[in-house]
Amino acid sequence: MDCHPEVWGRPRYEIYGDYDHSHLHTSGPMQHTQQPIVTGTSVIAVKFKDGVVIAADNLASYGSLARFTDVKRLRKFNSQSVIGFGGDVSDMQYLDRTLGSLDTNENYSNSDQPLHARNLHTYLSKVMYARRSKFDPLWNAILVAGLDGEDMPFLASVDLLGTKFSSPTLATGFGAHLAVPILRRTVPDEEAVQQTTKDQAVELVKESMKVLFYRDARSLDNYSIAVITKESGVELKENEKLENQSWAFADQIRGYGTQVN
C-alpha cells in the first residue's frame, strides 16, 4: 500500500475479490490499520488577505461505492480555526473526539490564550507522527485553516506520516493534482495572498471544487465550505451545491452520456 492519498481506499471487488475476513480473526498478533476503508476525497484551501477559505465535499466512499453522501468533513475547532479531513472517515471521527477533549481541557484550564490554528496544527502533527511511529497510522490527510497568534491567515497540512508543510494554497488527495494548479494560478505566493480578496478566494475555491467534481470519480456536488477571518470568525456552510455545472466538455468523450461505447 502506498501513501499517495489519491489511490487510497479502493478495495474494488473485481481486484480484491471477496470480502477479506482475516482481520476478524481474534487470535494472532494485534492488528493495526493497514488500509483506509471508508474514505473522503480532496480537501482544498487557499489563503487571502484577511483569512482562509477551505472546502471539502460531503461524500464518504466505500471503495468505489458512494456510501455516505452527507458526511461533513470540515470541523470547526473554535472561532479561529477549521480542520479539513481527507482519508479514512473513522480515523477522522476519532480525531474529532480527540480534538473535542482537547478543547474541553483547554477550556477548563485557566489559560486565557485559546489554541489558534498554528497550535492546533502542531498538536495534530505530533499526534499523526506518533501514530505512524507506532506503525498504527491515522489514515488521513489533514488541512488546518485559520488564524495564527498574530491574527494572520494560517494554512498548513499534515498527513498520515506526520509530514507537515504550509503554503498559500493547499489540497489533499486528487486536489493536489487537479486543484492546486488552478489555485496557484491566482495565488502563487504570499505576495499574491495580500492581493486576494475574500470574494475572489471563495470564487476560486468553488471553481476548483467544480473541476474536482468533473474529474474525480469519488466526489460529490454537495460540499462544505468555510471562511475564517478575524472580523467574522468562522463562517461554515455545510450544505452547498455546485453551481453552473457544464458538462459540455464531456460531449466528445466516449463513455459519457448516452454514447456508451
Partner: peptide, 12 residues
C-alpha cells in the same frame, strides 16, 4: 512549545 508551538502561559 513542542506539542503546541506555544509558550506556556504564566498562570498555567
Amino acid at each position: 512549545r513542542l506539542t503546541y508551538d506555544r509558550p506556556i502561559g504564566l498562570a498555567e
